[in-house]
């Protein structure tokens, strides 16, 4: 695998050399000193920090110098930091990024990963770009306990339609008023719950309420470690009601070069919602250090030795 990736990187590097008309431009070969240091930033929550550390170590494995500036804050803050150049790369979520960049919100029809990526590329700030998005998503889900799922034979949100009038749903208060919430569930799937309890957005209140049976259907984020820990069942969303939230590297164009692209695309190719959930659980549940977990991810997926 490693040899294959090196080959891909080399091929990309050669392609770049071929199209590069300026022979004095910084070398973008596999020499290791590829394009100077990359400053990796992250948002202020564990998943973003873990992903940023994975990116950092993947880059370091390819000989790129990395400076870490993690735990910056919310999107408003770190996007400014990216635009003013104090950071040059960070892990993002395609749907949430699109929503924050498009004035008036995301159009209701745009929700599949491909549509979101296409729309996102049109609204990216000047001087920034995204690379390939991963299959891993941290998105809104409707989640039930294993018991509820077997009792009512639930696999997807479509199966909820018949039993929803007997079930209580819980989510953050905003869920009641969003299209990607009760409104869309009713108009897209015809699902109408007996009652809605406004709790917190995928937080401990909602998770505990689901565990205790105070609610039967919960809006939890797809990489939440409580899903694995409690054997919750995530209902499929065949009609793509919930905006996709694929993890995608967002970076300044000047920081990009074939080595960086190769390293990050290699990470994106390996990331899935399942493996991200389990690695994130190592951070959140087992309280392991993110550098250790990131290293484990890269070695177990053949991205670093």
């Amino acid at each position: 695998m490693k040899r294959f990736l090196t080959a891909v990187t080399l091929a990309l590097a050669l392609t770049a050399c071929g199209t590069d008309s300026d022979p004095l431009a910084p070398s973008t070969g596999t020499s290791g000193a590829a394009g100077g240091a990359v400053t990796v930033g992250s948002a202020n929550f564990p998943e973003s920090q873990l992903l940023a550390e994975i990116y950092s170590q993947a880059l370091e494995a390819k000989g790129v110098k990395v400076t870490r500036k993690f735990n910056i804050g919310a999107r408003e803050v770190y996007l400014k930091a990216l635009q003013d150049g104090s950071i040059s790369l960070l892990p993002e979520y395609n749907g949430a990024l699109l929503a924050s960049l498009s004035t008036g919100g995301v159009p209701e029809g745009v929700s599949s990963p491909a549509d979101v990526l296409a729309a996102l590329k049109k609204v990216l700030p000047a001087g920034t770009e995204v690379l390939e998005q991963s299959a891993a998503e941290d998105k809104d889900t409707l989640t039930v306990t294993a018991e509820t799922a077997t009792k009512n034979n639930l696999k997807s949100i479509e199966d909820l339609k018949a039993v929803a009038p007997t079930l209580v749903a819980g989510a953050g208060p905003e869920f009641a008023e969003r299209h990607q919430g009760l409104k869309g569930l009713e108009s897209v799937y015809g699902v109408k719950f007996k009652e809605f309890k406004p709790l917190d957005a995928g937080g401990p209140l909602t998770v505990n309420a689901l565990k205790d049976g105070d609610i039967q259907v919960a809006n939890i984020f797809s990489t939440d470690s409580s899903i694995v820990a409690n054997k919750f069942v995530v209902l499929e969303d065949p009609k793509n009601l919930f905006l996709s939230q694929n993890i995608i590297p967002l970076l300044r164009s000047e920081a990009n070069n074939p080595t960086v692209t190769g390293a990050l695309n290699g990470v994106s190719a390996k990331l899935t919602t399942e493996n991200l959930t389990s690695y994130l659980a190592q951070v959140q549940v087992d309280k392991k250090d993110i550098t250790v977990v990131a290293k484990a991810f890269l070695t177990e997926n053949g991205l670093a030795s």
């Binding site: 208060p173 969003r178 309890k197 406004p198 709790l199 209140l205 309420a209």
Partner: peptide, 19 residues
């Protein structure tokens, strides 16, 4: 009370902040 899913005037505060 609104913070834990009940009613009362806190609903206006908490729901308002959420959206």
């Amino acid at each position: 009370a609104a913070a834990v899913g009940l009613g009362g005037l806190g609903r206006l505060l908490i729901d308002g902040l959420a959206v």
